[in-house]
């Protein structure tokens, strides 16, 4: 089964968030990467933009298609991974580390509680059609 670190929270849209204080680091899961296979491009928001939970904040593109990426919590973008668009291999090699996409100052840390744990996310992707 996919690689799903214990210490992260997950959305049903296949994003992960690592919470440190009031800042959340967000990326897409190894499962999502595996579905896309070849990620060749990524569009990120600008620092300072604000989003409500579950809004689209960017896109990842494979050769074949464009997929929207949704922010799992509300807040303001404080940092983006500027090297990622030029090195999309990182999605394959280190989806939960170097392939982080954005850091967000969370408006309401409680929103994290509505997300899935690693075990819940694993059950969720097992329930999906092949």
């Amino acid at each position: 089964m996919s690689n799903i670190p214990e210490d992260l929270h997950y959305s049903k849209d296949h994003e992960w968030i690592r919470v440190e204080g009031d800042v959340g680091t967000i990326g897409i899961t190894a499962y999502a990467q595996g579905k896309l296979v070849d990620i060749v491009f990524v569009e990120l928001p600008r620092v300072g933009e604000t989003f409500e939970a579950h809004q689209m904040f960017g896109t990842v593109e494979s050769v074949k298609a464009t997929s929207e990426v949704y922010i799992p919590v509300s807040g303001e973008i404080v940092e983006i991974n500027e090297t990622l668009p030029d090195d999309t291999e990182k999605f394959k090699t280190d989806p939960y580390g170097e392939a982080w996409m954005i850091k967000v100052r969370m408006k309401d840390a409680g929103e994290v509680n509505a997300l899935l744990s690693a075990a819940e996310y694993e059950d969720f992707i097992k329930s999906l059609p092949e």
Binding site: V37, D38, V40, S62, V63, K64
Partner: peptide
């Protein structure tokens, strides 16, 4: 089949 496990880039 839209792609095989190797992926579109490598197939191409």
């Amino acid at each position: 089949p839209v792609q095989y496990p190797l992926g579109t880039v490598e197939e191409h």
